[in-house]
Structure formats: structure tokens, C-alpha cells
Amino acid sequence: MKKLMRMATPIVETVKLRKTYMLGKVPVEALQGVNLKVQRGDFLAILGPSGSGKSTLLNMIGALDKPTSGKVFIEGVDASTLSDNALADLRQEIGFVFQFFNLIPRLTARGNVELTMTIPGLGRDRRRKRAEELLETVGLSDRMNHKPAELSGGERQRVAIARALANNPKFLLMDEPTGNIDSKTAKEIVELVKKLNRDKGVTIIVVTHDQQIALQTRRTVQMIDGLIVEEKVN
């Protein structure tokens, strides 16, 4: 019964989500009341032109930023009311993949993946083993000891994906994951992500311009001017 309840609760839900930035002295309404539900196992693409608020939405869902008004529920918990510490704990359970990879330059591929696991305090042996497994999953078993500068864009993004998966996240958030890599590599990344969703049941929310990704997802939402204007199931 309990399990059924959990299944029924959306993993992510936003209610009338608003965010207003101050750009200098000009207020910018990045989100103007976004309602979105994402179920467990979903693979959702958020599409929209620059400035439509899709990255802002992703930051809210990822507990990186707080909304001006409205609510963000992560597994039924209202993230907008949480303390800094509780938000940090929540972020440990969310996997982030960024457009610019955001790896720590001085650490090797394995070091970057391991770092994520030091935060919840995993022991050295266990995190090393898991880091190696994850890097193998993303096809980098022979590049583990290379630093980001020695890796190609595609390889870096694979490391970032391995890192995002390290702490068994509730879901994966990807911000333009293919925005900075060539189309061939992008295709491989898309395949990898799709496989993660299909085989391992990882819930994925991806913000993208890339039609190639959008076509592979189960569902797309289109955003314009801080509002969701269209939802489509592929």
C-alpha cells in the first residue's frame, strides 16, 4: 500500500512556480506560474528558445535556487520551504549534468566521480569501486585516470553523467547536455541517456535545443516566456 502511494506521488511537481530576477534594476520574470508533473521513470525534454525560463525551471527542480512564489515538490516534499542544509541533502539525491560539464579540473575522471561520493561520506574502497563501475557504464574504463583537460568534450560529458549517477539519484537533470559537443558524440550521449532510462529506469529531465534529443524522449514540454505552452507525448 505504502509502495503504491509512493508510486502515485509524482517525483517532481511544480505548482504555480514563479521566479523574478533583478537584472540590474529591471525585474525579469523568468517563470510566470509553471505547473509541471514528472512521474517516476519518465524521460522529459523541456524545449524553448533562450530566455524562455527553462534553465531557471531546472534550477528550481534541482534545489539550486528558490522560487519567488509557488511550490516545488520533490517526492511530495516542498523544497521551497527547506533550510540550506536540507537543500544540500536534497541535492545529494539529484544528479546534475551541465552544458559546460563542470568537472573539477585538478581531479581525474575517477576523482571527479569519487568526490560526489565523499559528500555523503562513503568509504574510499567502496567509492573507488563504484566510480570504476560507473565509468565503465559510460564507456570510459580506459580513461579513468585522465584529467578533464585530457578528455574530449564527449568524454567529459560522460564523466559528468557518471558523476551524476554516483549517489543513486532520484532523478537526473540535464542542462543542454549536448550543447557543447559535436553531433556524432551528441548522438552517443543521447543513446547512453536513453539506455539509462530504458534499462535502469532512471527518471530524466533534460533541457535542450536539440531536436535529436527531444525526439528520443517520452514526453516534451515547450516553454515560452516563462510558461509551459505545449505538452506532447512522443
Binding site: L64, A88, I104, T116
Partner: peptide, 13 residues
Amino acid sequence: REIGILKALGMKN
């Protein structure tokens, strides 16, 4: 930026 990454990974203040 590094601090941002660490925080995004769930590191506490």
C-alpha cells in the same frame, strides 16, 4: 565555480 559545483553535488555550507 568550483564551490558552485560542490554545492550542486550536495555539499553543505
